[in-house]
Design a protein around this nucleic acid. Structure first.
Lengths: 208, 208, 208, 208
DNA sequence: CCGTAAACGAGACGGTACGTCCAGTCTTATT
DNA sequence: AATAAGACTGGACGTACCGTCTCGTTTACGG
C-alpha cells in the first residue's frame, strides 16, 4: 500500500473537494498529493536536499507528518516521486541529423541538471536511495528507463544513418553522454557553458 | 587550526609511541590520526557513508568525540581526508600508445570506484560537501586536481602523437572519460565489466 | 445517545442475528455489544489497562473504531461498562453470624480484586475516570452503590445483633473493610493469603 | 546509571553554578534536578497526572527532553521521585497515648492524600508503575517502607502498652489504617472530614 | 627534571529531526 | 439508521546524533 519509490506520472490531481483522489488504475491516492509534492519541490529549491526535512515538508504542505509517512517511506521516496513528476522528459527529438538530435537531447539534460534543483539534489538523493538495495533500482526504473529508451532510439537512428559505427555500444554511449554532464556538474565542477551540448556531441561523434 | 577539508598526503604515520605526530611542515597532528582514519574507512566499508556517524567513528577509534571535532569539522571532512589518503592514485601510465595509456588510467579509476567503498560513498559525500560552497571546492582541489592533471598530461601526449584531434577539449574529454564510469556505477547501474576501460577508450578515440 | 459511563446491567446479549438489540427499556444498543465487551475484557486480561487501546479493542472485536466512539466516549467508559457487567456481585451473604457474613463478603471482594483483572485495572481506570469530574462519580454509582448497600445491610444486622457498637460509622466501616484489601493489593503489596478475610473481620470486630 | 525509580532524599541542591551536583554518595546528579522536580510537582498540581507530559515538564523546567530521558526512564519515574522528595513524612509521633499517636499519624496521611496532588496522582501513578513488574516494587521501597516502618513502631508501642492485642497483625493493621483513607479518597468518594483520623483510630482500637 | 600548554577523556547538555503510536473526527459507501 | 473503510489532524512518545561545553587528567616539550 505504501509506496517506497512507486512513482506514478499522475496527472489526475486537484480534484473537486471531498472526492477521494484515485490514479488511473483506481488506486487510492493521498488527499493532498499535489500540495505535498509541490512542497517537496519548493523545499528542494530553497534549501537543497540535505536541509529538506519530512517535518518541514509537512508544515509547508499544511499536512500532518503522519500523513506523509502513511504514503511514503521517508524523505528519499518523497523526493524521488516529486522529481519524477516534475523532471522534464519531453519528446524524443527528431531534427533530421544525428548531431542535431544529440544536441537537442543534451540540452534538455543540461537544463534538468542545472536549471532545476534536480541536479543538485541528485547525488545526495542517490546516496540516500542506495542505502537500501531496492531503493536505487526502483528509482532508476521510474526515473531513468523511459528517458534512456528515448535516447537509445536516437542513437540507433544514428547508427542506421551511418553517423555512428554499427557496432556502437549503446548503453556505454548513453553513459558517456549523460555522464559527461553529470560528472562535470557534480564532481569536476568545470563551469557548464551554453555550447556544452554541441561539444559533447562532437566529441562522441568523433568529428571534433 | 581545524582543517575543514584540508587534505594532506601525509606519509608520516604510525610513528614510534610517545612522540607527537607532525606533518612535513612541523604542524601538530592528531595524536591517534592513524587509528581515526582507519576507523572511518572501516565504518565506510561496513556501513556506508550514510550510516557512518561521528560518534561511531569515535567509539571505533577508541577516541573521544570531542577529539574528532577538535581536528575536523565533521563527517564530510573526516571522510574526505580518509578517502584522500587511501584512494589509489598511482603514477601516470606510459604504455607507449595513447589507447594503452587511457586504458591503464581507466583501470585504476574503475578500481577506485568499484573495488573500494569510495565509489559508493562518493555521491553522498559530494552531497554533504555541496551543502557549504567551499566544502566541495576544497575537496576537489585535494582529491581531483592531481589525478586530473595526470590524465590531462596523458591526453595532451595523445594529441601530440596525432591520436586525438589537436583541438580536443581536454577538460571535456576528462569529464566524459571519468563520467562514463561514474555515471554507470552510480546512476544507470549498468554492470561494470572487465572490458569497460577498453570500450570507453575506443569510444572516445573514435575507433570503436 | 452516547453513554459516558452509563452502565447497564444488561442481560440481553448474544441475541439471534439480525435483530436489533435493545435493552430492557427498549433503547437501542450497539449491534455487537457482546463481542465488544468481551474484547475489552480479553484485552484487559492479556495486556492490562494501560496497554489496552480503543483501536485494539476494535480489531479484536472485528468492529470499526468509529463504532466504539459512537456508543462510548472512550477507553474509560468502555472498560467501566465491561467491568460492571463482569464483576461478580453475588447475593448479600447471610451465614447466621456477623463474623461469617463479613468473611463471606470479603471473600468475594478479594476474589474480585485478585482473581480477575479488575483489581489490576482499577487504579489506572480510576485515574483515567478522575480526569473528568463526573466520570468517577458515574462509575461509583454504577459500580459501587449496589454492592456497598449490600454490605451496609450486613453491618447494620451486626449492630442489631450486638456484634458491633450501635454507633458504628457504617461508611467508615465499609471503607476500612474494602480499603484493607484494596490498599494491600495495590499499594503495600503485602501478599494476600487465603485467611485474609478472617483476619480483617477479626480486626474490625475487635476480637482479634 | 539511569535511575528508574531510584529515589533519594537529596538535600544537596541549588549548588553554585558550574559545579557538578553530586548526591551524598558522590554519585552524579542531573544538573538542574531541583528545577525539574519542581516542574513535575507544578505540572501535577495544575494538570494532574494524566495530563502531565514529559515534554511539558521539559519546557516548564527549561530543560531539554533528552535530558529527562537521560536520568529517568519516563513519566512514572519522574513523578515517583518528585513525590518522594516532596511528600511530607515527618517524625514518628509520640503523644503519650496510642490513640493520640495513631491520630497524629493519620492526620499526616490525610494531609498527604488530600492536601497535595499526591493523592490524586497516586492511583494513576501506581497504574503506570504496575506496567513493569519492578517499577511498583521500587516505588514501594523508596516511598512506603520508611513511612510504614514508622507506623509499625507506633503500633508495637501500643501493643506493649496493652492498647492493642499482643497478637495484632501489624501489617494488616497498617493496611486497614491507610487503606481506609486511601479507599475513601479514591474509590468510595465519601467526603473526608476533619474528624476522620479520630474515627479511624477509634474504629481500629475497638473503642468506637 | 619539572612546569606549562596542549591535547585528551568523560560526559552533561540543548537542539533538530526522526519514525511511531494512538486518540478522536470526518467523509463516503454499504448494508 | 448503524456500520465499514480509512484518511486525516493533533499530540506525545522515546531515540539518535549533532555539535558545544565544562572540568579534570594526561602527555610531551622546553627551560
Amino acid at each position: 500500500m505504501r509506496r517506497d519509490v512507486a512513482l506514478h506520472c499522475d496527472i489526475l490531481r486537484n480534484m473537486p473537494q471531498h472526492s477521494i483522489p484515485k490514479d488511473e488504475h483506481g488506486a487510492r491516492r493521498p488527499r493532498h498529493e499535489g500540495r505535498i509534492l509541490d512542497a517537496v519541490i519548493d523545499g528542494l529549491v530553497e534549501d537543497g536536499y540535505q536541509q529538506l526535512t519530512v517535518e518541514g515538508v509537512a508544515v509547508r504542505a499544511g499536512v500532518h507528518k503522519a500523513t506523509l509517512y502513511r504514503w511514503w517511506t521517508g524523505k528519499p521516496a518523497l523526493v524521488a516521486e516529486a522529481l519524477a513528476q516534475r523532471m522534464d522528459t519531453g519528446p524524443v527529438p527528431d531534427t533530421g541529423t544525428t548531431r542535431g538530435d544529440l544536441i537537442a537531447w543534451l540540452r534538455v539534460t543540461v537544463a534538468n541538471y542545472t536549471g532545476t534543483q534536480a541536479g543538485v539534489a541528485m547525488p545526495a538523493l542517490i546516496g540516500d536511495l542506495a542505502v537500501t538495495s531496492h531503493g536505487l533500482q526502483a528509482f532508476r526504473e521510474a526515473f531513468l528507463t523511459e528517458r534512456r529508451a528515448g535516447c537509445a532510439q536516437l542513437v540507433r537512428r544514428g547508427m542506421a544513418r551511418g553517423d555512428l559505427p554499427v557496432d556502437t555500444d549503446v548503453d556505454l554511449f548513453l553513459d558517456a553522454l549523460a555522464g559527461a554532464v553529470f560528472y562535470r556538474q557534480l564532481v569536476s565542477g568545470v563551469p557548464i557553458t551554453a555550447d556544452l551540448p554541441e561539444r559533447i556531441a562532437d566529441l562522441l561523434l568523433g568529428s571534433a
